[in-house]
């Protein structure tokens, strides 16, 4: 295609975005827009699927039947989110199995929070409250993302995430109002998950090279630091409400800005975990690889059976 044609297409594309007209799978889009979306949506899908593991870890040990049922339902929702998101990447021409292979060989990332272990039942509360809470902050703006299929998937996902966040906070509330042992369990979970939850919003804006372009394309609507601040502002009063202490000695309300000031994030830890050195990176990827390898004969059998059926039908 001639250069001026591409320039014209790009101009029309940006005009649509500026006018909040959704981009749909068959529309022309710049290669980088497509690549950025495939990267972002598939990483989001992987996060949902890897995210099943730390919570799945407690299903068989849930303390009562109601909690067991709620946790099963929540993890099932996450598998469902993974499925819609993989479907959204397929509308951009990506292949689900290829993107999964990228996860398994380390090319594709997923949310680092899932590389932390779930050590006690209280972690089911902390994950729902903080991790799903942070995910909602990140995801609500994505319901207005310029790419139609992603935006629509996010509308559905956000509704379910908000139920997840509430059930997590309810677990924490029950523990915080419980025996001293239970309260200590809740506080310990908050201590371990607070900082990793803040890291979920990604590097500071100054160190986030993709942000400007993603905002111009309306894939992203707010910067990492804006969303992180919003999360802190919403979550700190919730911790106070149930009598838990946020593990940050620098945390204080700032009258002037109308926001909480908070202490520095340990970015060395963030990058160590992103680069594969978190406490559970190896276990998580090994578990996903094993599921794929152990399931290969099942998928082959399903394909072989379907092929036999088709042959029978044709003859």
């Amino acid at each position: 295609m001639k250069e001026e044609n591409i320039e014209e297409l790009e101009r029309q594309f940006q005009e649509k975005i500026d006018n909040d007209i959704k981009i749909e799978p068959r529309d022309w889009m710049p290669d980088n827009y497509r690549k950025t979306l495939i990267r972002q949506i598939s990483q989001h899908a992987h996060s949902e699927v890897v995210g099943m593991l730390p919570e799945g870890n407690w299903i068989t040990r849930a303390p009562n039947l109601r909690r067991k049922a709620v946790l099963l339902a929540k993890v099932q929702d996450e598998a469902g989110h993974g499925l819609y998101l993989y479907s959204a990447t397929e509308t951009l021409g990506a292949d689900r199995e290829d993107t999964i292979d990228d996860l398994h060989d380390g090319t594709a990332k997923y949310s680092s929070i899932f590389n932390y272990p779930t050590l006690t039942w209280a972690d089911m509360g902390a994950i729902g409250w903080l991790v799903d809470g942070a995910a909602i902050m990140n995801q609500v703006p994505l319901c207005r993302c310029s790419y139609g299929p992603y935006a629509r998937a996010m509308v559905r996902i956000c509704k379910e995430e908000s139920f997840h966040q509430r059930q997590g906070f309810e677990i924490m509330t029950t523990l915080a109002n419980g025996t001293p042992e239970q309260k200590a369990m809740a506080q310990d979970a908050l201590n371990r998950f607070w900082w990793p939850a803040l890291m979920m919003f990604g590097p500071n804006d100054a160190d986030s090279p993709h942000t400007a372009q993603s905002m111009k394309w309306k894939i992203k609507r707010h910067t990492n630091d804006e969303l992180r601040q919003q999360f802190v502002d919403v979550t700190v009063p919730q911790a106070e409400l149930i009598g838990l202490t946020v593990p940050d000695p620098d945390l204080k309300w700032n009258e002037e800005t109308g926001h909480y000031d908070f202490g520095p994030i340990n970015w060395d830890e963030f990058w160590a975990v992103v680069n594969g050195n978190g406490p559970c990176n190896k276990e998580r990827i090994d578990a996903r690889r094993k599921a794929k390898e152990d399931g290969e004969w099942v998928r082959e059998a399903a394909n072989a059976y379907a092929a036999k059926k088709r042959t029978k039908k044709a003859s």
């Binding site: 099943m52 799945g56 299903i59 039947l65 049922a69 099963l72 099932q76 499925l83 599921a291």
Partner: peptide, 29 residues
Amino acid sequence: LSEWCGHGPVLEEDIAMTNIALDLVGQAN
């Protein structure tokens, strides 16, 4: 069945087995 959660041969089966486990826990209740 709930031991399978997150380890199924395809994502669709993770959903199906978790769903069946959920039904069974509901019946048990």
